[in-house]
Amino acid sequence: MATVSLKTRVYKNRHAYYFILPTLLGMLLIHFVPMVQAVYMSFLGLNQNTIGLYLAAPFVGFEHYKDILFNPDSLIRISGLSEAARNTFIYTIVVTFGTIFVGLIVALMLNRKFKGVAVFRTLFILSWVVPQYVTGLLWNFMWQRDVGIVNYILVNVTGLLNEKPFWLIGPNTLWAIIIPTIWRGWPFNMIMLLAGLQNIPETYYDAAKIDGASTLQQFRYITWPLLKPVWAILIFFGLIFNVYSFNIVYMMFGLGAGYPGEWGDLLMTNIFRATFSAWRYGAGAAACVILMILMITIVLIWDRIFQDEITVQK
C-alpha cells in the first residue's frame, strides 16, 4: 500500500471526495472561517467602544488569556467566571454519570422479558423528546419555593422535609439545574445501554449461572465490561454536551434577566452574559478558546483511556 503514490490513491478514492465535498464546503464557511476570526477576536480589545471596528480593533495580544487564567480581579473574571467554572465542573460530572447511572438501571429493568416491554420503553423515552427550553421553563416553575409542585410533594404530601427549601436561590440552585438536565438526558443513554445489553449473548450468563455467580457478580464481570464501548461513548457525549449546556439555565432564570446566582451559573451562560450584556467580546472569545482547548485535551485523555474499545477512525 505504502508504495502507491498519493496521486493514484486520490484518484482511486475520487468518489469519496465527491461524497464529502458539500459537507466540506459548508464546514469551511460556517466552521473554519468564523473560527479563525473568532480566535483572532480573542486577541483584540473588543468592547462596546471598539465593536464598530470589529477586526480592526486594537490588538492586545495574550492579555485576555492572562486575565482569564491568572488575574482574578480582571474584568472577565469578576462576573463570576470562577464560580461558573466550578459549577460547570460539578454539573458536567454529576449529569454525565447521573444520566448513565439512571439509564443503566432502567435499561437493566427493561432488559427482561415481560408483557408490554415495548410500551414501557417508548414511554420512558418521552422526557427526552421534551425540548430543553421547555424543560427550563417547566422546572423553573416546578422549583418555585411557595407554589412549586416539588416543595409541595416534599413537604405537604410526603412530609420528607419540615420546611420548604429554596431551590432557585442559594446552593440548591445547582441541583435545580442538574436534576432537570438528568431528567431530560437519561432516556437517550438508556436506549444506547439497552441496545448494548441486548447484544450480550445469553450464553455468557448461562455459563456464569452454572459457575454459581450471583446476579451482582454477573453484572460485575460480564455486563459492565461488555458494555464498556457504550458507556465510553456516552461519557464522551456527556462531557461535550454538558460543558456547553446553555438552554436550560438560560430559560430557567428569568430568561437572562439577571444573574442565576453563584450556584446556578454555568460557563456558557456566564460567557454569554460577559459577551453580550457586559460587552466584553474579545475576552469572551478568549474564554471560549480556552474552554475549547481544555475540552480537546479532555477528549484526548478520554481517547487514550478508551482507545482499545472505541475505534475512532484514525
Binding site: L75, G80, I169, P171, G258, G261, S277, A278, W279
Partner: peptide, 20 residues
C-alpha cells in the same frame, strides 16, 4: 458593563438576606 456587576453582587446580598 457596570450594571451586571452591581446586579450580581446585590443578588448575592439578597441571597444572604433570604437566609440560604
Amino acid at each position: 458593563p457596570v450594571e451586571p456587576i452591581l446586579m450580581r453582587h446585590i443578588g448575592i446580598i439578597w441571597d444572604n438576606a433570604a437566609g440560604v
